[in-house]
Design a protein around this nucleic acid. Structure first.
Lengths: 340, 340
DNA sequence: CTGAAAGCGCTTACAG
DNA sequence: CTGAAAGCGCTTACAG
């Protein structure tokens, strides 16, 4: 059977193409009777309007883009992003928007090229971007390209940003973590952060310092890069030559580094939590399954994804940029910070 | 600035729209000089042809669809799919195709509805489907919808399927696993499979039985459902009341069940590998991080995704259905099957 | 409430 | 090698 079109439906029903279109799109301009007849026929024929014709005439693609930039090796091991993706897709589908996904390596030029192309081809109506960087070039780029966007997890802005964004309460999260460690009796803490090119890490560091100062806790900072291996290296650097001043607890910036750290502690013959307690700034199945299981701050990535996607939908709808702070996080206390 | 179009480029260069189009698409019909001038101008203006206009006139969307159907809870914990996704996306991008992703619950009606809609709207040129089921309705549905597809991981076909598919060597994989256990001295083995609605599980079960018979190994089957919890339940059922006839090794159908199994063994006071060895039919970071680390059959999901995507690209290109068997798997021997 | 027509921005025979 | 024109299948003022 040849593909049915709006003209075919119109002919069958003895009405004009315009009426069919109005009926389908819930617009005024057709009687209720006509509308019903159109809708019924469409359903009977299992017919849907062509998305490309619609996109062309509406100048809207009906899709939203998302570039996942990660090491091929890391992809699929970063549970946070997968939860985020699920939340985003669900919210987009409810708003009748499709999700276009691109996976690239850590080369920023590729991400940039993807946006340029998407904007030029009018392939997507907007994009979601992640990992707010220092001197992040993407907001200006997207602005210039005229591609609406939401920055998920904006941080370190003095004033509220001029664009749509979700923001994280990094200072509050830091307080949650440090308070917990203080309560467990720790007075010397190491903080293994992600790369400082990520603005959120600065904010977290400031938060950890401030909360620690309040409790009279000493803090050692160590900059790592979110990879499992870097968590391991951090622990070797921090505890390889152990002294009386060594920390009694480590805060890791994500779950993978926590796992690497745990491995390294074992290799060094240090017990967790007896010698060194561990706490992760991201929860995941890894934290649950590790032995000992790892106390973690759950950021609820699926919910976060939903919030970010809804913000983008509303931006596309109204053109109005908004900032929304993300739902509160929750500390899941497990064995790695057990009281002895 | 208003959006540039092919007509604009033509005017600037003093040539016709057709020439611009031919030049852009590498088609004959323009001189090399003209082609260069067009390409240079497009680059200078950062201009790309509108994807929806192109899609409409070519009757091709330039996108491929993929429905990930999984429990919201499981999403992001199934490392296999994430690796697969990465491989697929990379191969599609090389073929200049976009990936449209839809995530749904375990409701088969939703998957079906998505395909109907995609086909009707001409939103995607083809789809990739996974998890070959018993009496799988999808091949017939997609055939009827005229939506080209590749079934990833087809199994249990007497004759080669009439559609494009990748096939797994389940029998060979079973032999790899059983041979390894035999070599480690096991003579009573339990096999915790995924749900038998998945055709691959039947083939795996047959393979495990056959290889075991050859070695004189006793096999107990247990049907579970790929979830972590079901692996735990399996172990409780199999080893809760331990007897002299209990198995000395367990094969789990995926990595999550292996993790659940490991937890349950610990709860029952059974040591791994001393009392019970464990081997997983899928590798992942979980297997590496577990203690003991878990021996696993690595299926190389990223490579598999690439193969599946290439098959779909070639189907869309030539219209010719082909069957390709997936690259060989590799057994990664770790501590959970160590010799004592 | 309905119909004829232009327009969205490409591609592609067809005639020169 | 180049140009004028039709067509892809919708949406949307505009006139009735």
């Amino acid at each position: 059977m040849a593909k049915e079109t709006i003209a075919g439906l119109a002919r069958r029903l003895g009405i004009s193409k315009a009426s069919v279109s109005y009926a389908l799109n819930g617009q005024p301009g057709v009687s209720e009777l006509t509308r019903r007849r159109v809708l019924d026929l469409a359903e009977e024929l299992e017919w849907y309007p062509s998305s490309s014709a619609r996109a062309l005439s509406r100048s809207r693609s009906g899709a939203v883009g998302m570039v996942l930039s990660a090491d091929p090796l890391l992809i699929g091991t970063e549970p946070y992003y997968m939860g985020l993706l699920a939340g985003i897709e669900t919210a987009l589908a409810e708003g009748d928007m499709a999700l276009m996904l691109r996976m690239i390596g850590k080369d920023p030029a590729q991400e940039r090229a993807t946006y340029e192309r998407w904007a030029g081809e009018r392939k997507v109506d907007g994009v979601l971007i992640f990992d707010h960087l220092h001197d992040d070039p993407r907001p200006a780029l997207l602005e210039r390209l005229g591609l609406p966007f939401v920055l998920h997890g904006a941080t370190g802005m003095e004033a509220p940003p001029a664009f749509s964004a979700t923001t994280t309460e990094n200072a509050a999260d830091a307080a949650t973590i440090v308070d917990h460690l203080h309560e467990r009796g720790h007075r010397r803490v190491a903080h293994v952060s992600g790369p400082l090119t990520h603005r959120q890490e600065e904010e977290r560091i400031r938060g950890v310092r401030k909360s620690s100062a309040r409790h009279g806790i000493d803090v050692v900072q160590y900059e790592a890069n979110y990879a499992l291996e870097s968590g391991r290296e951090a622990v070797v650097a921090l505890f390889g030559t152990r002294s009386a001043e060594s920390a009694t607890a480590v805060v890791f910036g994500n779950d993978l580094m926590s796992m690497g750290g745990l491995l390294a502690l074992r290799e060094l013959g240090l017990r967790c939590p007896e010698d060194v307690a561990v706490i992760s700034w991201d929860d995941s199945l890894h934290c649950q399954l590790a032995s000992p299981s790892v106390t973690a701050l759950s950021r609820n990535p699926t919910m976060q994804g939903r919030v970010a996607a809804e913000l983008l939908l509303s931006l596309l709808d109204t053109g109005e940029a908004r900032v929304r702070s993300l739902p509160r996080t929750e500390l899941l206390v497990r064995d790695s910070t057990a009281i002895l």
